[in-house]
């Protein structure tokens, strides 16, 4: 059954945190990655069927990495229903950037569903972000998942969590 409900989901995070790699294996690729460097955004879609039972087509806007939102980024974010905030576990500054980004998004879009992905769990030995850091975030009732674009860990789960949030009656 094709989805009748579609939602705009944005992928945001600092440069080279692995946003594009994260979704590459799980998402139907329509456009080349070069759009990211030219337009600053690449759009793909993914249909998920969360346990809430409503089939949902997620229009995923993969926004080029930056530690703060440019005007263009703001335009791309406009009307987003949810977002994935991605940080690189091996780079602590990406978490700081992510927090800034979240703050900006909150200001722009209000309190909308999001999931924070601490990426590159396959390189956990090199991580600068500690479990204490993560717990701290979790304490604030944030949905935080560690993920690996390489191994595909938790990527699907992250989208499913968002889908469940978006299709809550």
């Amino acid at each position: 059954m094709s989805a009748v409900l579609s939602k705009k989901v944005c992928l945001i995070g600092d440069f080279a945190v692995g946003k594009t790699s994260l979704v590459a294996r799980f998402i139907h690729n329509v456009f080349s990655d070069k759009y990211l460097t030219t337009l600053g955004v690449k759009i793909d879609t993914k249909t998920v069927e969360p346990e809430t039972g409503v089939s949902l087509k997620m229009i995923i806007w993969d926004i080029a990495g930056a530690d703060r939102l440019s005007t263009a980024d703001r335009n791309y974010l406009r009307g987003a229903d949810a977002y994935l905030l991605v940080v690189d576990g091996t780079r602590r500054d990406t978490l700081i950037a992510a927090l800034d980004l979240k703050q900006a998004v909150d200001r722009m879009l209000g309190d909308i569903p999001f999931v924070l992905l601490v990426n590159k769990s396959d390189l956990q030995s090199d991580w600068e972000i500690t479990t204490q850091d993560i717990d701290l975030l979790k304490d604030r009732n944030w949905a935080v998942l560690t993920s690996s674009a390489m191994q595909g860990d938790n990527v699907e789960l992250a989208f499913t969590l968002l889908a469940e949030e978006l299709t809550k009656p």
Binding site: H28, V30, F31, L39, I43, T45, I59
Partner: peptide, 10 residues
Amino acid sequence: DAVSGMFTAI
């Protein structure tokens, strides 16, 4: 859907 998004993005 993706094309539509890209139109907007462009």
